[in-house]
Write a protein that binds this DNA or RNA. Sequence first.
DNA 1: CTACTGTATCGACACCGTGTTGATTAAACC
DNA 2: GGTTTAATCAACACGGTGTCGATACAGTAG
Lengths: 177, 177
Amino acid sequence: MLGERPLEDISIEELATGAGISRPTFYFYFSSKDDVLLALLDQVISQVEHRVAALPRDFDVDPEAAWRRSIAVFVEVFTEHRAVSAAAITGRVRNAEVHDLWAKSMQTWVGYSTEVILAERARGAAPEGVDAGELATALNLMNERVLGAAFTGETPAIDHSHVLDVLSGIWIRSIYQ
Amino acid sequence: MLGERPLEDISIEELATGAGISRPTFYFYFSSKDDVLLALLDQVISQVEHRVAALPRDFDVDPEAAWRRSIAVFVEVFTEHRAVSAAAITGRVRNAEVHDLWAKSMQTWVGYSTEVILAERARGAAPEGVDAGELATALNLMNERVLGAAFTGETPAIDHSHVLDVLSGIWIRSIYQ
DNA sequence: CTACTGTATCGACACCGTGTTGATTAAACC
DNA sequence: GGTTTAATCAACACGGTGTCGATACAGTAG
């Protein structure tokens, strides 16, 4: 349903009857529409965390390829669950729990990016420059927004097939100059 | 009011009584809450257009300074009207007219950025690379998201005082390598 | 075979915000 | 003085949300 229209345009009545139950019964399982979204988002985020954790941390071998692989995880998982991802990104504003879950994950990813940038600077591969944490924040926010735009098919947006190229290009040039 | 809480949490009743009129009278002037937002956004965008148009196009003299000045216009105007900007960015999802107005402006800015990037490449100042239009799109979306995050004080976000530095740094490195 | 307990279900209700209608007043203009 | 036009709002209809209390239906202990 989220693939067709935003969560706001889906009534709990629809959700419930679609699941073969009545509206009050829906409330037996979830406390609100956003509670459903939260459960779905949680699964998507777990999948990202799982795949990120399994990534080799060999930035000293081929930095470009390593960054590209990391970004590819986000692109792939969020693309696979594009409807939920898009709904979460927009639902974040409305719902505190969705906001917090998303914010927590973003912080994890920003923290990870920051560490790698600092390590690359420490080994002399990347030059000093703006604060690594702020650079990582801007780049992660860019990824979020660019993917969101691609999912909802807005204009302007970047075609799905080029997203990974464009994003990793900007990351690498921003970090290594 | 938008500075305190999202538009969704403001009822038309509140808007109306705050303006000293009744709810039906509100509908005499606006067709919905989003219609008010649209009117406010229109003013902000006009201000940006006006200031961007007045910008010197001297990218051949000092490219870094020229980009920084352009980005500064967005940062300054949107910061000045941060509540409206933030509400528009989130309201875009809900309302087709807000979405269209914002999308139209984004396209204008992306178009302008693309032209400058192509000109810089043509004169040999910037290297060839990813599609200029897609690069411009990603960078403009980054600006939107980073400013939005700074306005709403989410985490992670970039401190207001550093936004211009971080953004223009990424733009320049992405474009000139 | 009861009586109890926890799970699951939903009809009916109360509430709130939205948008509309129709009547009313007040000013502006022949 | 009479007609149009702008402005106002009480009252209504509607739709979505969330709650409550009643009911059914296990499984389980006595």
